[in-house]
Design a protein around this nucleic acid. Structure first.
Lengths: 223, 223
DNA sequence: GCAAATACGATAGTAATACTATTAATATCG
DNA sequence: CGATATTAATAGTATTACTATCGTATTTGC
């Protein structure tokens, strides 16, 4: 993907003060990505982040009301950005099959090259989304946060790819189930490969997870 | 499934004192299942459990060194018990296809009838496993706990069903990936149906999740 | 260019959580 | 009946996730 230098806008519902509007805000975003990747979301605290950026905890709370709100912001950023990646990858590809194949690649592979000039390290962010994004919606407050639009960009990405599924197979009855299964499955299989290998099937092949889920989808859609 | 009154044994690595060896221990198990189901795992604390069973926190710590250890115990209990369910359901079924179909039902449907005479409410426990079991292995200490055998019964269940997959399709290259995708997917889709319905495909049909994953598996294995 | 708003830093404090430690009462078992 | 293990009762600790206050710096609007 070429460096389009596009600007990702996040709904004001998802922050207290826009982190994109100040130096401190951008430092919060970039350093939190590094720290969450390094410590995991549980080990990450605003206190540690404050020390890392030389600002008190209380200043961070001006931007995000909780560390969970920050995770929601980050995953939302990722999915908004990923929608752009999807749109870009689809352009000038006429065959629905080819578009679906390309979309599945985007959904199932972590990002490897940081093309961004911004404060967001997309490689690390995609790592975080793969390993921690579950925690953004798996809470007791899901319903409330969902109403505030916390998961809109994720849902939009699922819908977009589901629509391609329907182009390939107009009779498919469960396109959303299929795509959300693929996304979450790919995230989990990567984790399993690293920590619980007997739950997956390790191969030397580089993109075995993408291959598996691509096969799964296309065989499911065959008539 | 008939009431076999079978005794589930859990590896001593997974508790400090066997909760099955005393009244207090059994009360800890049965009440914790109710409380985790009611409050969610985050909202659940040993303090609340202590109040509910009229015992101090410190007594509970004699049985489990942490609330996470208790969750690991509970999921381990569930998967050991589910292996028995699998074995029982497979007996006298000759066709590998039928066995696989039956196994997928067991893996993708929450339990609805509590046949047990024991202190374990299997209906609630299966709810907990569906919604919280992710948290048992998604921690920074996975590797350590995995070495201690914390996930052996889960892995055994996956292996068992993967073996049936191989009977149906000896050439299948990713049976474990397929089955763990199905299990985790079914858990998630149930959650999505309740909280994020646009990530799934709601139907009036009762077992739509089981139907979907059964189709997914059999279409994947078709040659 | 100057007041007014805003942002930030510095510091302190709080309630809850996840444990740990200690001691005394009680039940169990040979 | 005496030794041993088990549990109750209580207290205490470090950490976490926030909240509150206040003075100073910085920007902004006119």
């Amino acid at each position: 993907m070429k460096n389009l230098n596009l600007h990702i806008e996040i709904s004001p519902e998802l922050y207290s003060k826009n982190p994109d509007s100040s130096d401190l805000g951008r430092k919060i975003i970039s350093k939190s990505i590094e720290l969450i990747d390094e410590l995991g979301f549980e080990g990450f605290t605003f206190k540690k982040l404050g020390i890392a950026i030389n600002s008190p905890e209380s200043s961070i709370y001006r931007y995000f009301e909780s560390k969970h709100a920050l995770l929601v912001y980050l995953t939302s950023w990722y999915w908004t950005w990923t929608e752009y990646r999807l749109v870009f990858a689809m352009s000038n590809v006429d065959s629905p099959e080819e578009r679906l194949r390309k979309a599945l690649e985007i959904l199932t592979q972590p990002v490897t090259i940081d093309n961004s000039v911004s404060h967001v390290n997309e490689v690390l962010l995609s790592e975080i989304v793969f390993s921690e994004s579950l925690k953004s919606y798996h809470t007791t407050k899901v319903d409330e946060e969902n109403k505030r639009g916390a998961f809109n960009s994720y849902k939009a990405a699922v819908r977009r790819v589901s629509d391609i599924v329907l182009e390939v197979s107009p009779d498919c009855k469960q396109p959303h189930m299929l795509i959300s299964t693929v996304i979450e499955g790919a995230h989990q299989q990567k984790y399993f490969a690293e920590h619980l290998p007997s739950l997956t099937d390790q191969t030397d092949e580089k993109n075995s997870i993408t291959t598996f889920y691509t096969d799964l989808v296309f065989r499911f859609l065959e008539t």
